[in-house]
């Protein structure tokens, strides 16, 4: 029997609410959702996180944030001056942020009776963000702004393996 995954619209509603909750609880920052097409990440080094869940529903979430903004988030949550943070530590903070954001979406999907397992976040530093900003049946890109930074989050619903 093949399970029907929730539509991308439902997944993205869960994702948005989770982003607000994670930023508020971990970083004491309020976030505003903006149309991704209108949002341009500043040029320059960008942190890219890939995280998701696999099983009866397969989802990949890609998070892009300028390194500067990521460093600011790490500095808040670790209560350390940004100058003392090394790249692996900033990457770890962004990976765990991704884990928390996607964990809530996965939990909602699992509570529909669809068995899935979270993946381990993979983090890289790229010279700039290049993600196609289209919305389709199987993917959508969301923009968020918070004090001192912006990020883009792309949600991709993948076909069953």
């Amino acid at each position: 029997m093949s399970a029907t995954p929730p539509p991308i619209h439902q997944l993205s509603l869960w994702l948005v609410s989770s982003v607000h909750n994670v930023f508020d609880t971990m970083f004491q920052l309020s976030t505003e959702q903006l149309p991704a097409e209108e949002m341009h990440l500043p040029a320059g080094e960008t942190v890219a996180v890939s995280i998701g869940f696999v099983g009866q529903v397969n989802v990949e979430v890609l998070i892009y944030a300028p390194s500067q903004a990521a460093m600011q988030l790490a500095s808040i949550v670790l209560e350390m001056p940004a100058a003392e943070l090394d790249q692996p530590t900033v990457g770890d903070v962004m990976g765990e942020l991704g884990n928390m954001v996607v964990g809530a979406v996965k939990s909602n999907v699992s509570d529909l009776g669809l068995d899935c397992t979270m993946t381990i976040p993979s983090v890289s530093f790229v010279s700039e963000c290049r993600t196609p900003l289209h919305t389709a049946d199987s993917s959508t890109t969301l923009g968020f702004e918070f004090h001192g930074g912006k990020c883009l989050i792309k949600l991709v619903l993948k076909p069953a393996a």
Partner: peptide
């Protein structure tokens, strides 16, 4: 943990967890 669905909670309960705190947390 960031996972708070009934299946994970149940699995942890069966192994006699003392508590469950969902991420994000304070």
């Amino acid at each position: 943990t960031a996972e708070s669905d009934a299946q994970r909670l149940g699995a942890a309960d069966a192994l006699k967890v003392a508590g469950y705190i969902s991420k994000p947390f304070q």
